[in-house]
Amino acid sequence: MKILVAVKRVVDFNVRIQVKADGSGVASDGVKMSMNPFDEIAVEEALRLKEAGKAEEVIAITIGPKASQEQLRTALAMGADRAIHVETDEDIQPLTAARILNAIIDKEEPKIVMLGKQAIDDDNNQTAQMLAALANWPQATFASQLEVDGDVANVTREVDAGLETIAVDLPAVISADLRLNEPRYVKLPDIMKAKRKPIDTFTLADLGVEAAASVKVLKTSAPATRQAGIKVETVDELVVALKERGLF
């Protein structure tokens, strides 16, 4: 069984995001970039399945500019067997990403596609769901526990009401939530070995996908800074204050 894991290059979660002066986006020049943390969890889970003998091969895939190969190398250093880079400088929105992944599914025929539940840059939380629809596969999103039993995956999901356990037939799309696992520390020798693992490169044209932007970004701006609060003495005052602001 093959597992395909999608990983995305994002601004590192430690970086204080700065909006570009012209409002065209957030500054990423010289800023530390990392693998989306949820994707790291997805990679870890795929590797654990392989180590448990439930999968033969783990393939990492990313869609993005040349530099995104750094994130593929991270996945390879964690233990993925090989990687696929769909190289593009275009802004890739969830639906395009899902189409690209679907095209790769046709080539690789994996039994599981693992993704992070969302990427911390745009926080869309859409790609996994869209991919499942395009591939006409079952989906198990927000996984916090995963157990593969033959052709079935038993997935515990983090839903608003608590936890929900579902069984999905494979092949399926699974998206990882924060508590699914704690990703391993990469070993230095594995960083070196990753350099020698193969990365196949495709363009969008190779896959017959166009980077259609269904959503247009008009302007990016920093959230307004929070105003200082006021102290009220009584519940009555609180009610008045809330009413004044149209909140009650």
């Binding site: 990392s34 190969q69 750094e70 250093a77 990469v186 230095l188 070196m192 350099k195």
Partner: peptide
């Protein structure tokens, strides 16, 4: 020869984490 920019970045990233 192995000390290419990607390795430098990888080493710093992963050592930082641990």
């Amino acid at each position: 020869e192995d000390a290419t920019p990607d390795i430098v970045q990888g080493v710093v990233d992963e050592a930082a984490k641990i």
